Simulated scan of single mutants.
Amino acid sequence: MTQTLPAPARRPRVPRLTGPVRTTLRLHRVALWLWLATVLAACGLLLWLHGPGADAAVRQLARCAPSDCDYIGGPSFRYEQLLRSVGAFVYLTPYIAALFMGVVCVGRELERGTAQLAWVQSVSPARWLATTLAVPAAWFIAGTIPLVTLLHLVATSGPEPRIPWYDEYLFLGSGPLALTRVVLGLAAGALGGVLFRKALAGGVAGVAAFLVTGYLSARYRISLWPTVTEHGPVPPAAPAGAQVLRRDAVTAAGEHVTNDLACVDAGGAAQLRRCARGFQDFSVTYHPSSHYWPLQLTESAGILLLAAAATAAAFAILRHRTP
Rank of each mutant, 00 (worst) to 15 (best):
L295R: 06
Q280P: 01
A252F: 12
A314G: 08
S300P: 04
R247E: 11
H287S: 02
S290F: 06
R274T: 04
A242M: 08
L295I: 11
Q296R: 01
A312I: 11
A310V: 08
G268E: 13
P288S: 08
Q271A: 15
R273Q: 09
G268H: 14
G241V: 02
H256I: 02
D265V: 05
D260C: 03
V264T: 10
N259M: 01
A253P: 00
A307T: 09
H287G: 03
A269W: 13
L272R: 11
I303C: 12
G268F: 14
F282H: 06
G241T: 02
W293Y: 15
L297K: 00
Q280L: 03
G302H: 10
T285K: 03
A253E: 09
A262D: 05
Y286M: 07
D260A: 13
L261E: 12
Y286A: 07
Q280H: 10
F282M: 03
Y292T: 10
I317Y: 07
A316S: 11
A313G: 12
L245V: 15
A307I: 09
A316R: 13
C263N: 06
L245C: 15
V244D: 14
Q280R: 13
V284D: 05
T251M: 07
S289H: 03
C263H: 05
L306T: 05
A262G: 08
A269I: 13
E299L: 00
A249R: 10
A312S: 15
A276Y: 01
C263P: 09
A266L: 08
E299D: 05
G241Y: 03
F279R: 01
A270G: 08
G302C: 10
L245S: 14
D260S: 12
P294H: 14
G268Q: 13
L306P: 04
G278Y: 01
A314I: 05
N259E: 09
D281I: 02
S300G: 06
A270H: 12
V257F: 02
A276P: 07
R277D: 07
A307F: 12
L245I: 15
R273F: 05
H256N: 00
E255P: 00
G267D: 10
A266T: 06
